[in-house]
C-alpha cells in the first residue's frame, strides 16, 4: 500500500514524530533537526489547523480512524473508547481521526454528538496522514511512540473478517494485546494486522462528466 513497511523507514519515523507535537509540554522531536517541515498537518473540529501536542511523559500516541457513516467504525467505537478510559492513567494519548476529506466539519460534530464524548477528535483535511502512514480504512488503529516508532497498525479487533463477514463477537482484541505488551516493557514491536472497514477517501471525488 505504499505506507509503512513492517520496519519504519527513517523518514517515516520522522514524519510520525514531527506530526505529533507537544505544546504545553514538549513537541515530538524530529530525529533530524529541520526535517519536519513537510509533514501533514491536522485540523481541529473547528476547521483550524493545529499541531498535535503531547503531555509530558506520554508513552504512546494512539489514534483510530472514523467515518461519520461507516457502520464498522461506529460499531467498534465504544470498545475503542473503553480501552482509552482503561489506559487513561498510563500516559497513553488517544485520538479519534476523521480522515475522509469529503466529510464536513458539521457532519463530524454531529457524529460526535450522536455517539457521545470520547478522546479528542481531529480531521485529516488533506488526507496527508492517511497517505503518509498507510492508513486505508475506517476503523484502523495506529499506535506510535512519541519518537515515532511503530507500536501497532491495523484492526482494533477481529470481529470483522471482510466486508459483510462478521463474527458474533471478537475472538482477539489485537490492539489491546499489542498495547498491553508495549506498556509492559516499553518495546514497540511494530505489530501489523489487516484492518477491515470502509475505504478512506483522501482526495475529492472526480466530478461527473
Amino acid at each position: 500500500m505504499g505506507g509503512f513497511s513492517r520496519v519504519l523507514t527513517r523518514r517515516k519515523l520522522l514524519a510520525v514524530s514531527a506530526s505529533v507535537v507537544l505544546s504545553a509540554c514538549r513537541p515530538l522531536k524530529p530525529q533530524v533537526p529541520g526535517d519536519s517541515g513537510d509533514l501533514p498537518g491536522l485540523a481541529g473540529l473547528d476547521g483550524v489547523r493545529r499541531r498535535l501536542e503531547l503531555p509530558q511523559g506520554t508513552r504512546a500516541v494512539v489514534l483510530m480512524t472514523l467515518s461519520v457513516d461507516c457502520p464498522i467504525s461506529n460499531q467498534v467505537l465504544p470498545a475503542f473508547r473503553e480501552l482509552a478510559e482503561r489506559h487513561a492513567a498510563e500516559r497513553v494519548l488517544f485520538l479519534e481521526l476523521y480522515p475522509n476529506v469529503d466529510e464536513t466539519d458539521a457532519a463530524v460534530v454531529e457524529h460526535r454528538t450522536a455517539y457521545g464524548a470520547g478522546p479528542a477528535g481531529w480531521r485529516d483535511p488533506d488526507g496527508g496522514w492517511a497517505r503518509r502512514f498507510g492508513i486505508a480504512v475506517t476503523p484502523q488503529v495506529l499506535a506510535v511512540t512519541p519518537d515515532g516508532r511503530l507500536i501497532y497498525r491495523g484492526r482494533f479487533h477481529d470481529q470483522f473478517e471482510a466486508l459483510g463477514v462478521r463474527k458474533p463477537a471478537p475472538r482477539r482484541m489485537d490492539f489491546a494485546e499489542a498495547l498491553k505488551a508495549f506498556l509492559a516493557d516499553g518495546r514497540p514491536r511494530a505489530v501489523e494486522t489487516k484492518a477491515i472497514g470502509c475505504r478512506i477517501r483522501t482526495s475529492p471525488r472526480p466530478s461527473s462528466r
Binding site: 457513516d69 461507516c70 466486508l163 459483510g164 475505504r199
Partner: peptide, 23 residues
C-alpha cells in the same frame, strides 16, 4: 447505514461496492 441514491453516493463507495458484489 448509508444511502445509495445518487451518482456521488455510489462513486464514493465504489471500492466497497465492488468488493461486496464481486464476493
Amino acid at each position: 447505514p448509508f444511502p445509495l441514491v445518487s451518482a456521488d453516493d455510489v462513486r464514493k463507495r465504489f471500492g466497497e461496492i465492488e468488493e461486496v458484489v464481486r464476493t
